[in-house]
Design a protein around this nucleic acid. Structure first.
Lengths: 342, 342
DNA sequence: CTGAAAGCGCTTACAG
DNA sequence: CTGAAAGCGCTTACAG
């Protein structure tokens, strides 16, 4: 026997038909215990593994999930948002736990490799990560849904969206972050991040911010909201510089992401303000870096482990045709030193 | 036509045989330009994609690479070493550029899923990441090599190792880091990291450290080397605490990784020493966090982008049967503030 | 519980 | 340059 053994080799040695080998190895009930264990022993001995291509071709399912990470072509591709990276870790674990293989790829919105993964039967379903800008992605998502593609995306959970979405409770998270600042006595709280429906996740965080201010009887000043659509440190830096330059008065910043918050802190420090004494800062995401910056960043934790599990679980249900809908994960405030709490 | 179109559907519409469709779509020269463009147009129109399973089964190659990340089962699995994460990013890009799909999975050394990927024809070759402890992994690597498995690993490049390895010039990097500290006037430089052949990467960095000291005419004190085999912050913290507790005199630390260095800094600060005034610190890797800690960490950059490309390129050559050997990437000192250089 | 047979959707040597 | 045919290695309905 040259090359990799096939089910025929096992069958020959076991003195049974190839069909029986296939049944035994797939765990079919239609095989006697004796035959099964003989076959299993021989398979182990010969180091036999079922050919995935043949099996997938015949069964018309790949037992594989594709994870597509969308990256902004304009930004430096070497720096992937750490938040997605940790999501990737948990998705990988969750897939393994479910017995699915995981294919990963970076994509640009402009390409249409999405369908490629399913049309070519490489994967049974797709997980979409990094679709921040809803305006740009909406058409794509609608195409996918119309095309019958099975996919789940991580992002804002909004009514009437195409496909199934899983996201974190950005509204509650934004509210908790803002309330924390209010409790610490801050009154002029700025929001660094987009406040438009184009970026639904940021927008929900903004709405949480507004809700907290209003509940405290404070006014929402337009000057205290600075646009920042991309979660990149540099953008947070520029946005904060802009506020400083225009002379807006503020004693706290709620940034829509940790990377934005880190840029904000740098801008503050460079302009001679102390964090948290002069300006308190809260971020969002709780990326690993948040715990190491100076001062350690108070932020809102998105549970990436749970998120990965939910994403995989939902997609598998979708693939199996089980009914499943959007899901929302709780957001949790993590208090560190950038706000000056105790 | 119900379901996904096949090459027969295309053939029917184009009025040619299915074989011709296959040739045209694979870019064979044995098709007239006219026929080819007609077929391509129809394929595009029907959204046809070659079935990867059928194609791989027939061609006996998956055009897929498996990336296996080894993680320590004892450590918290949620925190993957950021260095490997950025490697993962560059490997993903490199695979896409070469037209290969990328399968990823975390593995524990104890399992034998390695061969699984090849025996089941899921992938044509394997990239191994995270094999720090050579003692534990050696047997496995030898099995793989004996089994004819095509694989490349990232790690120390040592003569007589099974398989092909790609790594960074740890010796030169360790030397550069130590020389930098010497130039800044430090004389009692500690090494935090393993100095044993079990961890060949750390060992090479240690040898670079020794070489620099000896070139400067300094003695190598055993007290100034503290074992730390895992690249985890906590381990660096404990190792440094140990040195402080035992009263060893030192004015600089060269840590074998950034995570160790970060733990070292925390231990120093907690014991009331200033970094860099009292103790200068250099790390190794240049993970993203390095630039954000306080003070920003001077470290040795491993070019993960280049590394990913090389890993993929080498593996593909291996799969194609082209001759290829180990390769070494340069290490580059990145000066930040943790050493006090202007 | 087992076997013979069909077929998943391609690729490619062979013949023309 | 094109077609008919074999075959990659499985899974599963069908018959017993």
């Amino acid at each position: 026997m040259k090359g990799k053994p096939t089910s025929f080799d096992i069958a020959y040695r076991a003195g049974v038909s190839q069909a029986t080998v296939s049944r035994a190895l797939r765990g079919s009930g239609l095989v006697s215990a004796e035959t099964r264990s003989k076959i299993e022993a021989i398979a182990r001995e010969l180091n036999y593994k079922v050919d995935k291509n043949a099996s997938s071709l015949r069964r018309q399912r790949a037992e594989t999930i594709a994870l597509l990470l969308f990256e902004d072509p304009t930004s430096d591709q070497s720096m992937i948002n750490p938040f997605f990276l940790s999501m990737l870790g948990s998705i990988t674990h969750a897939c393994a736990a479910e017995g699915y293989d995981l294919l990963i790829s970076f994509q640009q919105l402009s390409n249409d490799w999405h369908a490629d993964y399913l049309d070519s039967h490489k994967a049974d379903g797709i997980i979409l990560l990094g679709y921040g800008d809803y305006l740009k992605s909406r058409t794509k998502l609608e195409e996918l849904a119309a095309h019958g593609t099975r996919f789940v995306r991580w992002g804002a959970v909004v009514e009437g969206q195409p496909g199934v979405s899983i996201g974190c409770d950005n509204l509650a998270g934004g509210r908790a972050a803002t309330e924390h600042l209010l409790q610490l006595g801050r009154r002029n709280i700025a929001f660094v991040g987009s406040a438009s429906a184009n970026c639904p996740e940021f927008f929900d965080r903004y709405r949480g911010y507004v809700a907290a201010l209003e509940a405290a009887g404070l006014e929402v000043w337009p000057d205290l909201q600075v646009d920042a659509t991309d979660s990149i440190e540099h953008v947070g830096f520029e946005a904060t510089r802009h506020m400083i330059d225009t002379g807006v008065k503020f004693d706290a910043i709620f940034a829509a992401s940790d990377l934005l918050a880190i840029g904000a802190i740098r801008a503050l420090v460079e302009s001679g303000r102390r964090v948290p004494e002069d300006v308190a800062v809260v971020g969002f995401d709780d990326i690993p870096i948040a715990n190491y910056v100076n001062p350690p960043l108070t932020t809102v934790l998105q549970d990436t482990k749970r998120a990965g599990e939910l994403l995989v679980d939902t997609l598998i249900k979708l693939v199996r045709g089980e009914p499943i809908g959007n899901r929302l994960l709780p957001a949790q405030l993590v208090v560190r030193r950038s706000c000056g709490a105790k």
